[in-house]
Design a binder for these strands. Structure first.
Lengths: 108, 108
DNA sequence: TTCTTAATTAGCCTTGACTCTAATTAGACT
DNA sequence: AGTCTAATTAGAGTCAAGGCTAATTAAGAA
């Protein structure tokens, strides 16, 4: 899971809305595309952004692609964000959790 | 709390690192700036992005500005992200939590 | 094969993000 | 006042994101 890709993917209202919809269950690309006032190619790039972050997966059934949420990556992202934003109680856990701790790049 | 601003603010490694550092306690702008290989004006824009999202607050003490994390907004953001990415058990809670549920914009 | 539907790719344009150097404000000290 | 340090603003350049129309691929149906 690449947090950068996930945050980039989440940083658009349409893409967040797609995530929210897919939480209720899978949906087809065309079906989702109808819900927003953008062209289908634009929707295609939104799907690509979400796929690149591995937040959604698509399965082709004939001519239709059905997207579903990738719960694993969603939870990994939550964990990473919790690690970043979650409160620390008393700054006790320096090397707290799953992801990389702060890695500064000091002067060379 | 504007999720868009928060996600925009988090979508940069330096800014995420600043958040991580401020979790350990307040830090001065100049002190933080030294930790990265970018110019001070660039750091200033990063601080601005974080301030615009209200993730950090700065207090001027003479000529020095000390930044500290805004834990309230951080937790609100976590809550909103949990609402978005957190698992739903069985898609039972349609109108689940604090933030706005899906608001589609159907064809006019 | 030809037609229709679903989705993506290609090409283009506009806007916003990120970075820099140079100049400017703001405060403290001599 | 003059000067030093801390931080921001101004201006400019590069690059990625987001959007469109038009063209292309892929699959199924006539």
């Amino acid at each position: 899971m690449k947090l950068t890709e996930v945050l980039k993917a989440l940083n658009h209202p349409i893409r967040r809305d797609i995530i929210a919809r897919l939480k209720d269950g899978p949906a087809t690309a065309g079906g989702l595309a109808k819900a927003y006032q953008v062209s289908k190619p634009t929707m295609s790039t939104h799907f690509s952004a979400l796929k690149e972050a591995d937040l959604i997966r698509g399965e082709r059934d004939g001519v239709t692609i059905t997207y579903h949420l990738n719960a694993t990556v969603a939870e990994e992202a939550m964990s990473a964000l919790m690690d970043l934003l979650g409160h620390n109680d008393a700054a006790a856990s320096k090397s707290s959790a799953t992801s990389n701790s702060r890695k500064p790049e000091p002067s060379p």
